[in-house]
Amino acid sequence: MLGCKLANTPIEMNHKLCEDMNQEPTNKEQYQRLVGRLIYLAHTRPDIAYAMSVVSQFMHLPSVSHKNEVDRILRYLKSNPGKGLMLSKNGDLEVVGYTNANWADSITDRCSTSSYFTFVGGNLVTWRSKKQNVVSRSSAEAEYRGMAHGVCELL
């Protein structure tokens, strides 16, 4: 991918990736190996964490559209080589947390996605984006579940 077209974002906004049996399959072992390496990289690159959580849902039956999204992540990484976590020494140790939830985000099972970020002294120390276990009846319920996960992490 040396001469590839660069991407500005790791995943398309309002993407519609889903598991469809009619899609053309791709090489499963190659897909799993590549996604596994990118998951390892996501520990120091929170900017690709959400995209990785999306493409890793299709490890058991990847299609060409899923492989194209992984290629987009690679093109994004090539366009942003210097990004990553930068920890700086600050005098304060204030703990700050942010939470968010996307109601009925998954088009396959209508589960919402919760995410949270925790900062200590202005440095990002933990983050997570995960599909909720149950289907929420409203956006308020999805946000409440997301806040509960974020508060547990803060505690």
Score class of each variant (00 low, 15 high):
Q30W: 09
H60A: 05
G91V: 15
M1H: 12
R37A: 07
H15M: 15
Y144D: 08
Q32R: 09
N22Y: 09
E153N: 13
K83E: 03
S56W: 00
I48K: 00
Y116N: 00
W127M: 07
S56T: 03
K28R: 15
L154K: 04
G36I: 01
V120Y: 13
N100Q: 11
M147I: 11
V135R: 00
N8S: 08
S88Q: 10
R110T: 08
R110I: 02
E12I: 02
D105Q: 08
L155W: 11
R137T: 12
T118R: 08
K83S: 07
Y98T: 01
Y144V: 06
S88W: 11
H60N: 04
G150T: 05
C152S: 14
S136A: 09
S129Y: 04
E29Q: 12
L17D: 02
M21F: 12
D105W: 08
L124A: 11
K78A: 08
P81W: 04
L41I: 06
N8D: 15
V96W: 04
F117C: 07
I48P: 01
Q57F: 02
S138K: 05
K83F: 14
E153C: 14
N102R: 04
T113S: 00
S88I: 13
F119V: 00
L74P: 07
M86C: 11
L154V: 13
G82K: 12
W103T: 00
L61S: 10
P81Y: 09
R33D: 11
M1R: 15
L87A: 10
P46L: 11
S136M: 09
E29P: 00
T126D: 11
N102Q: 04
R45F: 06
I107Y: 12
P10K: 02
R72G: 04
A142F: 05
N22R: 05
S63R: 08
G82T: 12
V55D: 00
S129P: 08
N90V: 14
Y76L: 03
Q30R: 10
R72V: 03
V55N: 01
L61K: 14
P25A: 00
M52S: 04
A148T: 15
V134F: 14
S65N: 15
V134K: 03
P25C: 01
N8M: 09
S129V: 07
L85F: 13
S79F: 10
G121Y: 02
S138Q: 06
L154S: 10
P62L: 01
S53R: 06
Y76K: 03
T118G: 08
M52K: 01
E143P: 05
